[in-house]
Design a binder for these strands. Structure first.
Lengths: 216, 216
DNA sequence: ACCTGAACACCGTTCAAGT
DNA sequence: ACCTGAACACCGTTCAAGT
């Protein structure tokens, strides 16, 4: 657990040839599979390499150490989620507060459940790996996007939009994780799909200041 | 990561003499400290033993393996939190819905922040360690307590109290964790203390069916 | 009874040797 | 250029030997 200086967690080299790119993809996919089946503790360089069909040495040509590989997997996943949020924000701007709340909530839920169903282990990766900068960056991009959304509600204004934005993101992220983490059954998902929108909507309406357009 | 059969995670023997009890306490405390400073990955049997001032062999007399030690630490912590919730439930029964919501929320927040400030690593322990039974037990005790509380609200009834209880617990646990996990600054805590009660109250009021006593 | 620490198997990482 | 796998240091766990 030495402190990672500079870009110590960055890939060692980018694949330049088709053969290499295929190798990296295989390693990447293998890492996710092993993480899912054996957990963070069970994720071994040997196991990833053998499942990817390469030798350990080859893996170390692309990732300077195990952590760099896991970091890359996490980065890729977070990028996917942020993109989903930013897309939802564009789609639901300039609507009623309740509409944009539901739109954002369901878009986030979809992104999570589609891409994440087995990648729960990534939470452990984020917790254990020096990922503060990466996470901070992703969080601020999400907050910026959500603030952009809320600012355009046609029927409400917020006194402290930064605070509300932050609280809403934490509500979304925390609740979804708390459920998916130890129960990905259809029942649990159904519960989220009905209750989470209610939570977000209720919170936003509670802290919003209605505007003249409200009575429309 | 072998499947834990039976009580494989239970302590090997209970301390019978004062000397032993002191040893176990020291090991326990050392584990928490190492977890805080070095994380889950950095938590080494050698490190825990040396910080506790005993040899590895001694540790293995009380805990059959590293996981059993971590399991015991987690169990102790969860017990503390459940007790806090159950105490709060007794204190706030038969009140207005908004009052009991705030009471429960702040009691939970207090329990978390007081005992947990450094023990964040326990989330990783719970995720990695075969703790499904333990967690399920704790969750159902919390849900039972919260349902007991909500059922006595003087101004509201719920059509599906199990669903609301579950959703409320997930909201509490998830949101608090999402904040504390990567930011235990006073600012973050202040945000939780103001916004979390609003979230819970707003959600409960949104799903509650008001009763005649409401207009009092 | 309780404690110790060398010894064994396994994992992360390197690097000389192969194609 | 890219790949391989034996070799080294370190961690979890055991157990013969100490008090």
């Amino acid at each position: 657990m030495p402190i990672a200086p500079d870009d110590a967690l960055k890939p060692r080299k980018r694949p330049r040839q088709a053969r290499s790119a295929a190798t990296v993809d295989a390693i990447f996919e293998a890492a996710i599979q092993v993480l899912r089946s054996d957990g963070f503790t069970g994720l071994t360089t040997t196991r990833v390499a053998s499942r990817a069909g390469v030798s350990v040495g080859t893996m170390y040509q692309y990732f300077p150490h195990k952590d760099a590989l896991l970091y890359a997997v996490l980065e890729d996943y977070l990028e996917y989620v942020v993109n989903a949020i930013e897309a939802a924000v564009e789609r639901f701007r300039h609507m009623l507060l309740a509409e944009m709340s539901d739109g954002l909530t369901l878009a986030y839920l979809d992104a999570k459940t589609r891409h994440m169903l087995g990648a729960q282990g990534l939470y452990v990766v984020a917790a254990e790996l020096e990922t503060d900068d990466l996470v901070a960056d992703v969080c601020s991009r999400c907050d910026a996007a959500i603030a952009r959304l809320l600012a355009t509600a046609t029927d409400a204004r917020f006194d402290d939009i930064a605070r509300v934005t932050h609280a809403l993101r934490v509500l979304l992220v925390g609740t979804v994780r708390a459920v998916l983490e130890n129960d990905v059954s259809p029942d649990a998902l159904a519960m989220l799909r009905t209750e989470l929108p209610v939570m977000c909507r209720a919170y936003l309406l509670a802290v919003a200041r209605p505007t003249e357009a409200q009575a429309v």
